[in-house]
Write a protein that binds this DNA or RNA. Structure first.
Lengths: 199, 199
DNA sequence: GTAATTTCTTTACAATTGTTAATGTTCTTT
DNA sequence: AAAGAACATTAACAATTGTAAAGAAATTAC
């Protein structure tokens, strides 16, 4: 894994936040103090099914995924890459037991904050409520787009859109994981890819 | 349509908000002034595809649905009933053209606020950011549950869960609309219902 | 660098769902 | 109350997708 200074990580993090709302240097002091940089190897489980999600993770480098387990089969719910806040959100927001697992698909560099620290930070930096609201709104909109694609589009269309939108994930994520994310079997995805390649 | 005093409507609205955060009488003055009570008949289109969603609607009485149009077929994205904030959210939040239509499935009593008034209100009553954040979080969690059901459950299971969770909607909403919400055809839903009734 | 594991593709077959069209039912409208 | 429209069910058939199993390819581990 390449090394990079913590300051640079924090800079890219601040940039992401300031796309939402400008942050004063004083507020930034408070915020950056509370986020802890960590590195985790591939296959690390950050939150496990049955546990309460203690933290959210801003992704500096790497890929995380959420998956559900149904009859010993892992079904991917979402794939997070650089610049996103990842978590088992429902568990984190409600502080209830998760029905999802959060897993590193690559070696990752993350900035993490736990639930109680975030609540404290909300009180110290009220502007963060706006960031929280906008992030929740963005995640809602994103989820709604995915859901509408399940209602409106064929499996093939959905795969094409995924490939168009996330060409890097297509390379970095195993296909059977993409398949379950699209709501189909690996066999079916393989057939779709063959069909497309013939055109 | 039964008549009820505007004061009572506002009371039930305040109650819903206070489940999220206590609101002072002063703040409540500001808030309640800005929401306008309206009544609309069945089949009213509150936002049309291609338009920008001007307002959000708190539902006092009645049912709204969001639908997409694909090759002249209407596909239901969500069904809102009493106590929820309904809108074509993506269009409303981003103030971009909607790819959804918001329709009244029954005669409705609503409290409405338009985008710019809400932005003003956010400035006057900062506590509303918390309400906005929590509502966005709730809608995100709800959307995520629906999406996971599409990934994890069979059509029959999804119908059973819908029937369990919303027995009233089962009565009040036409079945072909429920079918498209579940991501299946009316024919397929009819088969599922028959299969279940035999057990 | 080779063995072991994981991942991807292919095939044959089974199961589910969609499509079309006909029929019956219910709801609206006048 | 009758006519028309909208909705729900059923049947036959077509198309799609899932399942299971086997082999090929790629990746990982020692």
């Amino acid at each position: 894994m390449e090394k990079q200074g913590t300051e640079n990580h924090l800079q890219s993090f601040r940039k992401t936040m300031e796309r939402i709302i400008p942050i004063s240097d004083t507020d930034w002091q408070m915020i950056s103090q509370k986020f802890e940089p960590i590195e985790v190897p591939k296959r690390t489980l950050l939150t496990k099914e049955g546990q309460i999600a203690s933290s959210i993770y801003f992704i500096i480098k790497g890929i995380l995924r959420i998956f559900y387990t149904k009859e010993d089969v892992e079904i991917t719910g979402f794939i997070f890459s650089e610049g996103l806040f990842a978590s088992c959100y429902e568990s984190f927001l409600l502080q209830t037991k998760s029905n999802q697992t959060l897993e590193a698909l690559e070696d990752c560099v993350l900035l993490t904050i736990d639930y109680h620290t975030l609540q404290t930070l909300y009180k110290e930096v009220p502007a963060l409520h706006i960031v929280g609201r906008v992030v929740a709104e963005q995640r809602f909109i994103n989820g709604q787009r995915i859901l509408s694609s399940h209602l409106l589009d064929s499996h093939e269309e959905r795969y094409r859109q995924f490939a168009d939108q996330y060409p890097d994930l297509l390379q970095r994520v195993p296909q059977h994981i993409i398949a379950s994310y699209l709501g189909i079997t690996p066999v079916s995805l393989s057939r779709i890819r063959k069909r497309i390649s013939r055109k």
